[in-house]
Write a protein that binds this DNA or RNA. Structure first.
Lengths: 233, 233
DNA sequence: TAGTGGTCTAGACCACTGT
DNA sequence: CAGTGGTCTAGACCACTAC
C-alpha cells in the first residue's frame, strides 16, 4: 500500500479534499457524518471534526446540525488579507520608509465623518493627514480622524517619528473594524501629493475601527498608482 | 458575582481579549502558558488552546513552541474576503443579473498568459470574454483564459445561460489560487463596454487558480466604476 | 424527537526550539 | 535538554434543527 496513512487532522482534510476535487463527492452531496468518517479513517471524531471545520471555514463544505455536511454548491472561497503597517510593508519591499505630517489639527467632527463613526458632530477629534514614502517616492496618502476621548494620550503624540497607524495599533487596541476597497481617480491635490497625473487610478482603502461600541478611528488610505494588494487562497 | 463565567473557549477568548484591550497584557508581553491559564480559568487545556489558537489566527497573539505566547507587537489584523460568484453578488444587491458572451475562442496561450500560468506557449486554451450586467447596467467585464486539458468537458459548454465562473466553480474544483487587487484607468475598449468615461478608475481583480500543480484558469475582472469590496475584521 | 455537529474534559505523547 | 504549544484519544453532554 502506497496510500498515505490517515492519522492527523491534516491528512483527514487532505483526503476529504481529494474526494471533492476528484468528484467522488459532488457539489451538493451529503457526506458521511463525523462518527462514520472517524471509523472509516480510524481516527477519533475530534480529529475528523477539526478537519471538517477547517474545510467549512475555507468554504468548501457547508455544515448544519442535524442536516449534516454537504459539499458546497457554490464554494465561495475565502481569501485572507493581511492588513500590514505601512512602514513594514514598505520595508518588506526592500525600500526605505519615511513619512511626513501634512496636517495635525484638533477639531470637531465634520458631518461626513460623524455619520460614518456614529458620533455627534461636536465630538472632539484629531485630524491627521500624512504622506508615506518608499525610497523617497510617494507611496501612500493617509487622511485620518481619531476620536480623542477614545484614545488616551493621543494629544501628546507628535507622530513625527512614528506614524499614526503604528502608534494606534500599539496603543489603542480595537475589537472590530470595517474595511472597504475601491478605485478612484486622483483629485488635483492627491495627484500633486502622490506625484501622479490628475485622474490617475489609485487604490483606496477606507477603514473604520471600534473598541467595543466606541469609535476609535476612521482613515482613508490612497495608494500611489501601481499599487497591488496580493493574497493567496 | 457579576463577572461572566468562563467555561467555553469563546469566553476564554473574550477574557484574553479583554486583558489585551484593557492593557493588562501589553503588546510584546509574554502571557502565561496554557497549563497555567487553564488552571486559572478552571477549564481544560484544550479549551484554552482553542481560544488562543483563534486569537493567534486573528493576529492578536504570536505563539511559538518553547518560546511561549506573546501579545502581538504589530497586530497585523487579517481580513477575510469572500470571493462570490458574480451572479449571486448582483442578486444580493437586489438587482437582476444577466451576462453576454463577447468572444469565445479556442486558441493557444499568448506569452503573457503562459508565463503567468507557467505553461508552454502552445498549450490549447479557451479564451472567453464576457460582460455581466446588473439591472441592464454593465457591472463587470471578464476576460478569462481556461486551460482546456485541465477542465474536462469545457469545450461543450456554451456559457450562454451560465457564466464561466459559476460553471468552473461547480465543475472544476481548484486547490489553490492567487489573487491580486488593483486600480486601473479604463482603456477605450473597457470604457465603451462598461459605459464609463475613458480613463475612469476601475477596480480590478486578477485571479489565477490551480488544481494541484495544473493551471486551471486565469481571469481579469474589471468592475464598473463605483464598485466597492467590503469586509469586516 | 432524534440525528447531527459543537464543544468540553482529562490525559497522553509529540514536535519544535530557546537555552 | 527541557519547556512550550500542537495534536490525538475516548468519552461525554449539549445545542440546534429537520422531520
Amino acid at each position: 500500500m502506497t496510500v498515505p496513512e490517515i492519522n492527523s487532522w491534516q491528512s483527514v482534510k487532505a483526503e476529504v479534499m481529494r474526494r471533492i476535487v476528484e468528484r467522488t463527492w459532488l457539489p451538493g452531496d451529503l457526506v458521511p457524518n463525523e462518527v462514520d468518517l472517524a471509523e472509516e479513517f480510524g481516527v477519533a471524531r475530534a480529529t475528523v471534526n477539526r478537519a471538517m471545520r477547517d474545510l467549512a471555514d475555507a468554504g468548501l463544505l457547508e455544515r448544519r446540525r442535524k442536516a449534516g455536511t454537504r459539499v458546497a454548491l457554490n464554494p465561495t472561497r475565502k481569501a485572507t488579507l493581511e492588513i500590514p503597517i505601512t512602514r513594514l510593508e514598505v520595508e518588506q519591499r526592500g525600500a526605505i520608509w519615511r513619512h511626513a505630517i501634512l496636517e495635525r489639527k484638533e477639531t470637531v467632527t465634520p458631518v461626513v465623518v460623524a455619520s460614518r463613526l456614529g458620533l455627534p458632530t461636536n465630538t472632539p477629534m484629531l485630524h491627521v493627514r500624512s504622506l508615506h514614502y518608499a525610497n523617497n517616492h510617494p507611496f501612500l496618502y493617509e487622511d485620518r480622524w481619531i476620536n480623542i476621548s477614545a484614545v488616551k494620550g493621543i494629544c501628546d503624540v507628535s507622530f513625527q517619528s512614528i506614524d499614526a497607524n503604528e502608534w494606534l495599533v500599539q496603543n489603542a487596541t480595537f475589537t472590530r473594524g470595517d474595511i472597504s476597497f475601491s478605485a478612484a481617480n486622483t483629485t488635483k491635490q492627491e495627484a500633486e501629493l502622490l506625484e501622479a497625473g490628475v485622474g490617475a487610478a489609485i487604490f483606496v482603502i477606507d477603514r473604520t475601527t471600534w473598541n467595543g461600541d466606541i469609535p476609535v478611528t476612521a482613515v482613508r488610505l490612497a495608494y500611489a498608482p501601481g499599487y497591488r494588494m496580493h493574497t493567496e487562497i
